[in-house]
Nucleic acid binder design. Structure first.
Lengths: 224, 224, 224, 224
DNA sequence: GATGAATGAGGTTTCATTCAT
DNA sequence: GATGAATGAAACCTCATTCAT
């Protein structure tokens, strides 16, 4: 699995230029989607010639993949930082949710980019992208839950892998709901609240309750 | 909100042909995405000329919207049928999860199509699509949860709208995980199990636990 | 020179339907021009099927030519009627001008159709059209002027053919100026008067002066 | 009123290429009309790719408008040069007529292009084109006639705006008659002379008489 | 005679990619 | 290294015309 989708020349340029190209690329791909994004426009907005762009990236796809790598690494780093604390799982979960809100404000494009790749149709590319993006993230979640399980902090009948999966599903959709057009409208429909007047704290609090109960309570035999 | 995106002529043709066009269209849009889908290919595969296609639909977008309407209505009907029983909420939830699995086998393309529209980038179209797709669904969930709340079947501190939202998030991602390339690989990474060898029952069972606890247990004061 | 551009079947239908088809056709060709006119729309507006249209006319061009024939014959008849009086030339001229105004109100589409054919680019079709439309008209003008010349009603140094030509040029452009989009705006620019507030009588009076002097006064030797 | 209908890139290319593109474009539009003109053919004939054509012009219409602007500016300049002399009106008129003949030989396509726009059916475009083409021209004529009126060189009862209008009508139709297919055949019919054997001088001379008398003689009371 | 569903060639436009300078 | 002019395949869409019923 090679994460390098750029040519050598791209490594030799100044950090500033490299950042600018990726930032502009992410903005374009996140706001228009892969197909509608225009590499000529990215080059212009980044202040370099299209010819130079092709000195850095062999194809549009390679530029896209490099943007993805960059964006997803950022999200991953944010996650890693949060999760390496010694907090209990649900404290981490709360931090995660708060961080998700903050990311949605400050780094919406990274999340939109993530949304774009979750809709990838090409089988091979989807597999490659998923491995690149999800491997490390999933490990972090699974490990944390496994630890919590070992400590007895969570219900003993849960499967760490699957509960990690459900947890990430909730986090992912929450982030999409704060940043991506379709999901934003969907959230509005569910809450009945107009966009902009959304009480994000209330959502986080309720989701926290949801997760907390899901993770901690085992069902007792009942007629329920 | 007009759900009719076809021309009159489309209503006059045989059911068989109408179904065929939509089926082929859904297949194309679901497998390639809107931009890469090719209406010439859809026409050819549906066994009609491109000119005739344009007698039925004014634009590629209209064909797409008609496919969406068709696919989403199917999913909605399936949901409605399930939810109109007098079962308790968690029984319904289990039925939902089982149905989601079945849908993913038999009607994968409908779900892939849904996945495609959740990545819509154009603001106005996203809003239109979300309203068309989510309005009825959200109402069904919210109503069911509100009833359960009234009956005391679920924890009293939950917000029906938000819990409906979380529930649908879990269901939606589950379905994507069974049908869409990226999500499938992601699920594989989380479970560590090779695609095809997936024990879907185990996933459903765990998710059911997850949901059940989330919905029924209120946290008691603790040092947790 | 065959003026029949329709199939036999077109002669066998009721006058009413024949009139309707031509009227609608003239409307479409006059308002959109030949290329943009849509024969399917003409059929629909005329209340017949497109198949039947092709029973009456072999091609779009044939329909167009039949519309032309019809419209131009009407203009020709109007002219003939006016000119067969025993009035002096300038009285006829005045009648012509008044008639031109009236035609522009009541039969604008015929004149717009005439305008359309004056822009014909295809050499052969242009020749055919000109012969069909101008032959009789020109003869009428030339004859009238020749008679006036013989009677001594007009200056003796004029060439009847060329003065007929100039006269018709003035009449034709006047009619275009009352009915065709470009010429209407052009007239507005020349007169400085807003469309609709145009004093058509004043224009006719001035043009009459213009023509009268042109036709009647011979230049005397002068230092002018 | 923006006369710039090209993209920036069109300004950066060599004069030679710019001229070639416009020349070829004018040729195509003049000979086939707007609808039938084919930009792929224009590009090929101009020796550039279709992609490059679209680097210069956003749409077919923009290319057309740029051709128009170019052609009409040429005609306007020619007129301006002629009319800025201190000659008396009728001397100018004669020069105009002679120039019209010459233009018809050397720059027939410009006049054919003018003919094409006079048949414009779309209201808004017609208005825009008329303003672009006729504003300056009309002013030149009107001013010249107003001056002649002030000097007593022409009859005192003429309206400068309308007589300018009539004069231009005669000039315009004369030019069309020398260059445009339909009008050429029409002229042939009026004169009875075969194309090519036309005595243009005789036409000009007669038209000069026509105009001269129209402009200089006031009708005296008569029983005419 | 009458219908209108069906055809498909052809035109406009986009944009990833190349390459001479 | 850097430029950006140039390419051309490919997609959407229109509409004159055909033909089975």
């Amino acid at each position: 699995m090679n994460l390098n989708h750029h040519k050598e020349a791209f490594e030799r340029i100044s950090d500033e230029r490299r950042e600018r190209i990726l930032e502009i690329g992410i903005e374009e791909f996140a706001s228009k989607g892969y197909e509608k994004a225009n590499i000529n426009i990215i080059a212009r907005n980044a202040g370099i010639s299209i010819g130079l762009m092709y000195k850095y990236f062999a194809t549009k796809e390679d530029l896209f993949l490099t943007c993805i790598t960059r964006g997803m690494r950022f999200l991953e780093n944010t996650l890693e930082e949060l999760m390496q604390s010694r907090d209990k799982l649900l404290v981490k979960a709360e931090k995660l949710l708060r961080a998700a809100c903050e990311l949605s404000m400050k780094n919406a494009n990274y999340i939109r980019l993530y949304n774009e790749i979750t809709a990838e149709k090409d089988g091979k590319r989807a597999v490659m992208l998923a491995r690149q993006v999800e491997t490390s993230t999933s490990r972090i979640y699974i490990t944390a839950i496994a630890q919590a399980l070992a400590c007895g902090d969570v219900r003993q009948d849960l499967d760490p892998r699957l509960f990690a999966f459900f947890l990430d599903n909730l986090l992912m959709t929450l982030q999409f709901s704060f940043t991506c057009e379709y999901y934003r409208e969907r959230l509005k429909i569910y809450t009945g609240v107009d966009v902009g007047k959304l009480d994000e704290d209330e959502i986080v609090n309720q989701l926290l309750k949801f997760i907390e109960s899901a993770f901690t309570f085992e069902k007792q035999p009942s007629n329920f």
